[in-house]
């Protein structure tokens, strides 16, 4: 065996010298994150309309929507989130942005939950729950202005209104339908 070959492992010194120290004193020095990094999401409460598109797309069910009589609650549980950013992609109003935040460990699960409470609009006819938020209604009106007349009514009242207007066209009197 030649001496050159025998001494080859010592090349390590030159390699190590050239590359210097590559580890960092985390957490005192921040690790390198590129611009493309996907961290936790942030939901803009002023834009979100509670439609639930993100909930349908979310692969691990980190986003959930719970509907009650007068509220719609969008809950984001960071503990389940896989940071894929699908929600940001499908959000129709661009309320979700993907941040660079990733240091999310916490001693309490409460810190891992973020909730957004939407108030449900009341039906302008009967005053019952409409199942939609006011922003959702605005969104629908913006997309199809013709819907403005009946979008504030619940399906029952809408049906009523339709029958009423049809009947009126056929010549019925209004008082027949009161009470």
């Amino acid at each position: 065996m030649s001496l050159k070959k025998l001494l080859k492992p010592f090349k390590l010194i030159s390699i190590a010298h050239k590359s210097g120290v590559v580890t960092v004193l985390y957490p005192y020095q921040k690790p390198l994150i590129t611009t493309e990094f996907r961290g936790k999401i942030s939901i803009d409460a002023t834009k979100c309309m509670g439609c639930g598109a993100c909930v349908n797309a979310c692969p691990p069910n980190a986003l959930t929507l719970s509907r009650r009589d007068d509220t719609i609650v969008l809950n984001y549980f960071i503990g389940r989130c896989i940071f894929c950013g699908r929600c940001a992609e499908v959000c129709p109003v661009g309320a979700i942005t993907v941040t660079h935040e990733f240091e999310l460990a916490s001693a309490s699960t409460r810190d891992l939950n973020e909730s957004l409470v939407h108030r449900v609009e009341k039906c302008s006819g009967c005053g019952g729950g409409l199942g939609a938020t006011s922003r959702m209604l605005q969104y629908v009106i913006l997309r199809s202005p013709a819907s403005e007349n009946y979008v504030h009514l619940c399906p029952n009242c809408r049906k009523k209104k339709l029958i009423q207007s049809l009947a009126m066209k056929m010549g019925a009197r209004t008082e027949d339908y009161e009470g």
Partner: peptide, 25 residues
């Protein structure tokens, strides 16, 4: 250590291309 030092650059590249070091999504 040196193999992983080199690999780290590939991980950063993967993050730049996909948004995540692993489970690119």
């Amino acid at each position: 250590m040196h193999s992983w030092r080199i690999r780290e650059k590939v991980m950063v590249l993967a993050e730049l291309l996909t948004g995540s070091r692993k489970t690119y999504g």
